[in-house]
Amino acid sequence: MGPNGGGKSTLARLSNGLLHADSGRVRVAGLDPAREPYLVRRRVGILFQNPDSGLVAPFVEDDVAFGLENLGAPREEMRERVAEAIRAVGLSGYERREPHTLSGGEKQRVALAGLLAVGPEVLVLDEPTSMLDAAGRREVLERVHALRGNRTVLHLTHHLEEVLDADRVLVLNAGRLVADVAPEWLVSDATLLRENRLVLPTVSRLALGLGLPPAKPRTPEELAAAVGERAERRVGRR
């Protein structure tokens, strides 16, 4: 996380050799992405922000197969992996759809399937939901969530609610790493948030303003329940 211009996208692009470090070292599984970008890119897949910028083929299944084709995968194996990847993003039945007829959320899931087909150990998501509507955002986040445990996910985002389930949160500001903390820690540190131009989700800010723990209610439903409970307790006490 971190403000615009903090260095998030630069970091993502250093991780698979799209950009090279002026000094210092980048290693991915012991490999230098600047020297061996093709080996590294099999292990690190990046999902970019704009759902329209990454789709290349006339049909969904061809698009998902594109990365594998470039790697020269055998035809049968390719078929299986493409089908599996399309299933993993919940788009079975979309194989022969034309990408330009899909919604933003569906396009991002096609792009994600293209990455998954190659089977990277690390997925880098560079603000994958910032151009999507609420429904599209939910679709993509659900799929990302389901991938946890299988592989490493580096998720770049401005939305604090998207990182509440993360294992660690790194905060980049003006090209420096300024925090490496647990998400609960970040949401309860008002100074750290302010200095890095981060704002709590609306539900958390309402909770905080009502004297409730900000990390606890995550949805309007949970917040309304907490408010109701507290109001009732007070009635009971009286």
């Binding site: 971190g2 403000p3 615009n4 922000q49 603000e127 910032s130 401005h158 131009r197 981060l198 704002v199």
Partner: peptide
Amino acid sequence: EPTAGLDPAT
């Protein structure tokens, strides 16, 4: 969509 992709403070 003037704010898409901007940090919350911006």
